[in-house]
Design a protein around this nucleic acid. Sequence first.
DNA 1: AGCCATGGGAACCTTTTGGTGACCAGGTCA
DNA 2: TGACCTGGTCACCAAAAGGTTCCCATGGCT
Lengths: 133, 133
Amino acid sequence: MALAPLPDHYRLPPFDEACAPRRLLRLFSGKWITMILHTLHLLGGGSRPGQLMRAIPGLSKKMMTQTLRDLESMGLVSREVRQIMPPEVVYRLTELGEVFVEPLEMLYRWGADHAADLERLASPAPQTDLQDR
Amino acid sequence: MALAPLPDHYRLPPFDEACAPRRLLRLFSGKWITMILHTLHLLGGGSRPGQLMRAIPGLSKKMMTQTLRDLESMGLVSREVRQIMPPEVVYRLTELGEVFVEPLEMLYRWGADHAADLERLASPAPQTDLQDR
DNA sequence: AGCCATGGGAACCTTTTGGTGACCAGGTCA
DNA sequence: TGACCTGGTCACCAAAAGGTTCCCATGGCT
């Protein structure tokens, strides 16, 4: 972890909700966005929709399409269509997309290295039984 | 970035939604969770609620209390009460909380270093005008 | 009474994200 | 006809996250 300390601009209150790091966290808050970015990365930078579906359990066609469309409009993914039968569509990480894979993979690696800590992480209690405070 | 490559277990499809790195991303998907963890960290590891309110624009008392309660039940934050008048409550990062501050600060630093890329990141298009594909 | 300090709860609502199930298109093969 | 391959859309809904507004409590001071 040879990262420079956080610049002053980000270290003093008030902490701006729209600052650059917050934009990153906002991007990564989407369940399927990060799953799909990660999977595209692991599949060599690009993939056809069917391959994505098979690689990601629980992903519905609807969520896949919606998320890929979002990623495309954000400029993180490109969509290439070959008008043959059956059609061939390939979604590929753009240059910008590759940039953002880096922090995502940082998190994946950190998570893999700290699986034990993540096991210790309790689920938030249901919103009852918290009267004794 | 001297991190080891991702273990095989995490590199081959199918990609398990409940695996350790996904749990980390799930944790970080909460808007106020990360803001409050980051702020506690920057304020020396602990803070009183009023100080948190003043440090984080846009945070309502309701969301602050709710989020602190969640963080407490997850074991990331402790709550210490001094029964004086006016009351003194201090929320403090636990050991486990300090562990999870690390990847969060990694993201903050990455975001600070790549503000230009984050500026280039377009907002997803509204769900209209996407007929021309 | 009002104000200030402190910290917190509840009712209700809005917005966002994710999910279900059905449908569409073209083509090939039995 | 049906099944398969490919990729995508739509209507509607559920769940989760976040937001607004009001209320509560203690004590001290004007």
